[in-house]
Simulated scan of single mutants.
Amino acid sequence: MPSTPLSVLDLSPVPAGGTVGDALRNTIDLARHVEQFGYRRYWLAEHHFAPGVASAAPAVLIGQVAAATSHIRVGSGAVQLGHQTALSVLEQFGTLAALHPDRIDLGLGRSGQRRAEAAKELATAPPPPGEARVVDGLLIPPPFSFAKILTSPRAALHTALLHQPGAQPPDFAEQLDDLLALLRGDYRDTTGLDAHATPGEGADLQVWLLGSSGGESARLAGALGLPFAANYHVSPATVLDAVAAYRAAFRPSATLAEPYVVVSADVVVAPDDATARRLAAPYGLWVRSIRSGQGAIPFPSPEQAAAHRWTQEDRDLVADRLDTQFVGSPETVAALLRTLRDVTAADELLVTTITHAHADRVRSFELLAKEWHG
């Protein structure tokens, strides 16, 4: 029986002391390598206002990666649909699909409603903290609330810069309906007037939804019969809720006869456990920068990480992410990934890896692929 496919999620991380140009060139180099290592797809994230992340314009970067490779699927993980119109997203990805047939994935995520929902969450009494549990060997940590980050003054500034003045992101389900109708070529407005996207209509695209909980994205993906990606690496506490909600809502479609789930994981692989732990040591500082609201910092070196003095507040802020990062030798990490696959019944695993040195990141993907595929 063939092994479960592995794919890559890349944020184009900027290393401490490096530049955005370094990060983007590293992304293209990594894509060329993982294509040869046998990974199925290469997804680019969308992040804004993060000094340590260069993947702010995934459609642009996807075009560069697809042009530099020959057969690996390339896509977004995910386009934040609330920041653009359905038409503009489809035109971008329709262009990519016309240039690179049968290779482009359009991964979509919610963004516009999250800040309002977080405000409502803060307005009510916070739920009591949950407890960590282990499900058939997989750690499910207590949930982390992003409400304070999403309702901060800095988040409000970022939202204002991402949207046209006075614009309000439309309902996610409505935007998704518009995009899919434009893709099929059967879009009609409320008066019956039609519209057609060129490029975009009839494009050779795989449309995915990404989600971190059992909320709207998971339910919509299931109801529409689309493939779904669940984020263990972003929100490990809710990954089982996400995949369960997707499967419960699933209805067969022209796209899928049965559910298809990808689950993500943060991974660092080295020849031995001790080396992997040293390479992964800066990860905590990097996550701390995100969760403290400053935005992802350039990824520190192991030496910079060793010099940091951690407070208990710092540790509590990042504990769920550190405890669920898969770090070690190829054998160690492959065993952890098999547990994640089995517990979530994932059809595919999406691996994201960040190290300070680009060569260590390439080596991590190589070692994992050799161990995974045998």
Score class of each variant (00 low, 15 high):
residue 2 P to L: 14
residue 3 S to Q: 12
residue 17 G to D: 10
residue 25 R to M: 04
residue 28 I to Q: 07
residue 31 A to L: 09
residue 34 V to N: 01
residue 38 G to W: 10
residue 38 G to S: 12
residue 48 H to D: 04
residue 65 V to D: 08
residue 67 A to V: 13
residue 70 S to V: 14
residue 72 I to E: 05
residue 76 S to N: 10
residue 79 V to M: 12
residue 86 A to K: 04
residue 90 L to Y: 05
residue 96 L to W: 07
residue 98 A to I: 11
residue 104 I to E: 06
residue 104 I to R: 06
residue 106 L to T: 08
residue 114 R to I: 15
residue 117 E to I: 15
residue 118 A to K: 11
residue 124 T to Y: 07
residue 125 A to V: 15
residue 137 G to I: 14
residue 137 G to C: 06
residue 148 K to S: 06
residue 153 P to R: 12
residue 155 A to F: 08
residue 166 G to M: 05
residue 178 D to F: 00
residue 178 D to E: 15
residue 178 D to L: 02
residue 186 D to P: 00
residue 198 T to I: 14
residue 198 T to L: 11
residue 201 E to H: 14
residue 210 L to T: 01
residue 214 G to D: 04
residue 216 E to Y: 00
residue 216 E to Q: 14
residue 251 R to C: 00
residue 253 S to M: 11
residue 263 V to L: 07
residue 267 V to L: 06
residue 272 D to T: 15
residue 280 A to L: 10
residue 280 A to C: 10
residue 282 P to W: 14
residue 287 V to Q: 12
residue 295 G to E: 07
residue 301 S to W: 12
residue 316 D to M: 05
residue 326 F to W: 09
residue 327 V to E: 02
residue 332 T to W: 09
residue 353 T to V: 13
residue 359 A to N: 11
residue 365 F to P: 01
residue 373 H to S: 06
